[in-house]
Every structure is written in C-alpha cells, then in structure tokens.
Amino acid sequence: MGKIVISTNATLDGVVQDPDGQEGFELGGWFHQFVGGKDLEDWAANETEELLGAEALLLGRRSGEWFESRMRDGAEIRVSREWADRMNSIPKYVVSSTLEHSQWSNTTVLNGAAVKEISELKRTVDGEILVYGSYQLVRTLTEQNLADELRLVVFPVVLGTGLRLFDETSDKKPLHLVDTRKIGDGLVLNTYEFVQG
C-alpha cells in the first residue's frame, strides 16, 4: 500500500506561492532571500535523501511541466546531480484533465477520474508517493482524505499575503505532529500525519 507524502516549502505564515520568483508575484523569490548557504546545503541533502527513499512522484500538470522543463538536458540543477538523476528515473504520475501525454521519462498521465486513479495508485505502489508543488492537487488529496503525511519546510519570513497551501478546505483537517527538526541554521522541517476518520 502506498503512502502519499506532501513535501513542500512555505513561509512562516504558510505562503507557498512563487518561491523562486519566476511567477511574477511581487513578493516572490523568498526561497533564496532569507536563508544562508548552510541552510540550502542541508535542505538539498534532505531533499535528495527524501527523493531517493520514494517509490513514485505524484504531480499536478503545472508542477509536472515546471519540473520537466528543469530536468531536460542542460537545465540548471538546483538540488544535486543525484536528485536530478532520481527525478528523471523515478516513476512519475501527472494528474491533468488537459494533458494527454508527457515527454518526460517514466511519466504516466492520469487524465481520468482523479480520485479513483489516485486511490488505485495508492493500492498498487508499495512505498512513498511524493507530491511536490501541485497545490490544487494537494487540496484535492486533503479534501478526499488521500494524503497520509505532510513534510513542511518552514522558511523564516512572513509575507502577509500570497497563495497558501491550505487556503480553502470544506472542514477541519486534524494532523498529528510526528517530528520537528532544524535544517541548517534557519529552516525547520515539521512532519505531520493526517488524522483519518
């Protein structure tokens, strides 16, 4: 049985929008602005270890396209070569109602009934299914009680505005804190389990 793990970066006030500053959000670019070199080195090591331990990636269309464009030959690698190689080789599932196929290696497009296909994916994959970015998909996974764990790397800045990971939910979604640890000198990784039932 697969375990869906949402892994994301957010500001202290929960903003996930435009971390690299390439989306045109006026407060974008916070990922690199408020941390030091040790923070990013330790963050990259954590990301690489996490991806190497996963069995699959689950992405929304826009996040799938974003990662694919950065993994093509000659693209800038922001984490590590080992991470990039794993990104290209790991089985990937992209949820989209408009995309028919992907050029990215080992990618399957889920373009049917998303909840049914993701439920089937959980039954057939044995191990962690990582979700990067994909905030619309994250909300669906949360609403449908398909997410099992949240790994949230908190960056030391408050933006006051911007798209948040859980902007809209239909009801309370309790989580249980499993672990908290420092990454580098300024980042905090909080790991939560979604409380089902």
Rank of each mutant, 00 (worst) to 15 (best):
M1I: 05
S7R: 13
N9A: 05
N9L: 04
N9Q: 10
A10I: 06
D13Y: 04
V15S: 09
P19F: 11
G21D: 10
G24Y: 10
G24T: 06
F25Y: 15
E26W: 09
E26Q: 13
G28V: 04
G29T: 04
F31P: 00
H32K: 12
Q33A: 14
G36C: 07
G36H: 06
G36W: 05
G37N: 10
L40R: 08
E41N: 08
E41C: 01
W43S: 11
A44E: 06
N46T: 12
E47D: 05
E47V: 04
T48H: 05
E49K: 15
E50Q: 14
E50D: 03
E50G: 07
L51V: 11
L52V: 07
L52T: 10
G53T: 08
A56Q: 13
A56P: 14
L58Q: 09
R61S: 07
S63V: 13
S63W: 05
S63Q: 14
G64V: 10
E68V: 01
E68N: 12
E68G: 12
R70V: 02
M71G: 14
D73P: 13
G74L: 08
G74R: 15
A75H: 03
E76L: 13
I77R: 12
R78V: 10
V79N: 06
S80I: 04
W83Y: 11
D85N: 11
D85T: 11
D85I: 12
R86L: 01
R86P: 04
M87D: 03
S89N: 13
K92H: 14
K92Q: 08
V95F: 04
S96E: 09
L99D: 02
E100F: 11
H101P: 00
H101Q: 13
W104H: 06
W104Y: 06
S105H: 15
T108H: 14
T108C: 07
L110C: 07
L110D: 09
L110T: 09
N111D: 12
G112A: 03
A114S: 11
E117G: 08
S119G: 15
L121Y: 13
R123E: 14
R123K: 15
T124I: 15
V125Q: 08
V125C: 05
G127W: 03
G127A: 05
E128L: 03
L130A: 02
V131Y: 09
V131F: 11
Y132M: 08
Y132G: 03
G133Y: 01
S134P: 11
Y135P: 02
Q136I: 07
T140W: 01
L141W: 12
Q144G: 01
L146C: 01
L146V: 00
D148I: 09
E149M: 13
E149L: 06
L150H: 07
R151Y: 00
L152I: 14
F155L: 10
V157E: 03
L159H: 04
G160L: 03
L163Q: 14
L165V: 07
T169Q: 15
T169W: 00
S170Q: 14
D171A: 14
D171P: 00
K173F: 07
P174H: 00
L175H: 03
L175C: 08
L175D: 02
H176P: 00
H176I: 13
L177W: 00
T180Q: 04
R181Y: 03
G184A: 05
D185S: 09
D185T: 07
G186S: 15
L187M: 02
L187E: 01
V188E: 01
V188L: 13
L189H: 06
N190W: 00
N190C: 06
T191L: 02
T191W: 00
F194M: 11
Q196D: 11
G197I: 00
